[in-house]
Each structure stands twice: as C-alpha cells, then as structure tokens.
Amino acid sequence: MTRSRRARIHLIRRGLLYSLGLCLLILLIGGIGFWWLEPGIHTLQDGLWLAFTTAATVGYGDLVPRTSVGRAFSVLVVLLGLAVLSLVTASLAALFVEQEVEQEERQIERELMRELHALRRQVSALQDRLDRAHGANPPPQEPQ
C-alpha cells in the first residue's frame, strides 16, 4: 500500500471518528437541552432518547416536546442531527468505497506489471535477434 493510500484511509477513518464524536456531542447537548427545557422530560435518559429520535427524525411519539421553546429546540436538533448523521453516513460510505477502489487499483497494478514483464521479454528477444543479425554482418564503424 502506497503512502498516499494510507494517508487517504487515515483521513477517512479520522473523519469518521470526528463525525461520530460530533454526533455524540450533539445528542448529549440535545438530551441535556430537552431535559432542561421540557417539563415532561424527567430524566436525562429520557432527554437523550428524545434527542436521538428527534435527530434521527424517527419520532416514535412516546416522548414529544410540548412547549414552544422545546419545539424550537427540536428544530435545531433535527437540523444539526441530519447534518451530522449525514456526515457519519458519508464517512462510512467513503471508507467502503476506498477499500473497493484500493482492490481495483491493486488488480490494475498486477495486470500492468504482467504486461511490463511481457514487454521486457519481447524487447530482450528483439535485442537478441538484432545481436545475432549484426554478428553475421557487423555494422560499419563510423570514422572518428
């Protein structure tokens, strides 16, 4: 694996970790926000659940924001959640695509190396033929 490929995979993995970390941070802030803003959310666990279902746009309906401030906050959680979850999905997809592209590149490299070896054998055979032909009739030497 070349250095640039390793660097690309490292960046993709690091991007995935960053986006997962950002996702967890948004969910944590969302959970704390719902727990603090909504009178019907009594535990942090319920706030985190509401933040997750809101950010993922699942909305099971078991917990919902009731106040206007909670609903406005849920809009923010939805927008941030969609953006960050899209980043996580894109990072995962890029990781899988990079691995597939790497396999294709290795296959192309092997084929090119086979063709290069075949060309070297052909050039060597042609050189041998030229050497034999000139051995019978040496080329005239240029005067110096």
Rank of each mutant, 00 (worst) to 15 (best):
T54N: 08
S74E: 07
A133I: 13
V101F: 06
A93P: 03
T57S: 15
C23H: 07
W36C: 02
A118C: 12
H10L: 11
T43I: 06
T67S: 14
G135I: 02
A7R: 10
R71D: 03
I108L: 15
R6P: 00
M113G: 02
Q127V: 11
E115I: 11
G59V: 01
P143F: 03
L44N: 04
F96I: 02
E38K: 02
L50R: 04
Q141S: 07
L24N: 00
W35Q: 06
V123E: 11
G135N: 11
D62N: 12
L24Q: 00
R132F: 09
L44H: 06
L37S: 04
S124W: 12
V97F: 10
I29S: 06
Q144V: 08
L130D: 03
I32D: 00
P39G: 05
R66E: 11
L130I: 09
A7G: 01
I26P: 00
L85A: 07
E104I: 09
M1H: 02
L44Y: 12
A118R: 15
L11C: 07
S124N: 13
G47C: 06
L76H: 08
Q99W: 07
G61Y: 09
V123Q: 14
R5S: 07
L16S: 02
L50G: 03
G21Y: 00
S124P: 03
T2G: 14
Q127F: 09
Y18S: 00
G47I: 01
L48V: 03
Q45P: 01
W49Y: 14
M1L: 03
I12N: 07
L76F: 15
L76C: 14
L126V: 12
A56P: 07
G31I: 01
A93N: 06
T2C: 03
R106A: 13
G61S: 10
L119R: 15
C23S: 12
G59A: 04
W49M: 03
G59N: 10
T57G: 04
L92C: 14
R3I: 05
V75I: 14
L119P: 12
T43A: 09
E38C: 04
T54R: 07
P143V: 02
V77C: 12
L11S: 08
L44M: 09
I12F: 08
A118D: 15
Y18P: 00
